[in-house]
Amino acid sequence: MSVDQKNMEASARQFLAVASVQAELFAVKQISKRISLSAKNAKAIAARAGSQAMGFHPITDFIDDVAINITQLVEKINAEALKLSSFAIANRNRSKTIEEMKVSSRNMVKYADHNGMKKRIEELEKKKKQFMVDYKRKNGDLLELLAEIRNQLQAAEMICTTSRTEATRAGDFQSNLEVVADEVSLAVNNIKETLQSSKYHLSQLSLR
């Protein structure tokens, strides 16, 4: 397998990885919607519980904020991942062009325009190098955004712990509020697992 064929395979891996990240983040977005629903549910329960669940009101707002933040981050990551995907496809086309030009060069007869071809291949190779630099930077940006989601999840985990404490003071509504805390906790764990996979896919994007 030639170097350019290897590069093309790497490019194909890159845009497949981006597509996988996008699909996973779509799932994260759906889960964060579930968190938001749980927050609304908790708010309704807390309202019915009245003074028994006073401490739950700010918690539900906080849960809602976390869900909104995660959704916004996911949308941002999706937009960046899409750009990265287009970028990877453009690079694949470039790699394919370089590969085909090199095949063509080998088949060219003596009096053909070898110089013009050599010059253009060099220019495209240079562009490809610049692409690698830009791609690395964009990939780094994506990883940072993923880290931001992880921060939000840590906050959500803390809320779950606080929620359970507050639930014990809610009398008849304790079990209802514990269910909400469990739901949020489950959702957070689901997002964590999905992000683990996204992190793996993003590591596939690093250029070798």
């Binding site: 085909e100 030009m101 095949v103 063509s104 088949n107 060219m108 009096y111 053909a112 070898h114």
Partner: peptide, 11 residues
């Protein structure tokens, strides 16, 4: 057939 057409063109 791009590479073959290109080679033929540049001849």
């Amino acid at each position: 057939i791009f590479s073959a057409v290109l080679a033929a063109t540049l001849s």
